[in-house]
Amino acid sequence: MKLAEIVDRLALEVRAGANQVAEREVTGGYACDLLSYVMARAKEGNLWLTVQGHPNIVAVASLVNLAGIVVTEGARIEPATVEKADQEGVPLLATPLTSYQLAGRLYDLGVK
């Protein structure tokens, strides 16, 4: 499923990497706040759900080649994170939902 469709259907706010949203294909999802876990276990093309807002998340997403990052629960995203995500072309999205709630909705959309 295209990231743009997910953004649209789940009303995610696009905070950075907007020009990448239309093209990215989401192959699955991964939810975790331990960056070392995400580095080791998330798969290329996954959409990553986390409450972390530190610039390190952009480095992890770019390392694993994730489809994008959703910062959940309206957690604070540092300005440097937004800037870095734009530079690196990593879609950075935001939602007030918890990771649990958003994962459930993604599952319902068929992202498994």
């Binding site: 390190n56 480095a59 870095k84």
Partner: peptide, 21 residues
């Protein structure tokens, strides 16, 4: 800076940034 590494094989280095965070 996670986007700095002396490694030649990839361009991201997270060891120190993760420890700092």
């Amino acid at each position: 800076d996670p986007f700095f590494t002396t490694r030649q094989t990839r361009r991201v280095g997270l060891g120190i940034p993760l420890f700092k965070a």
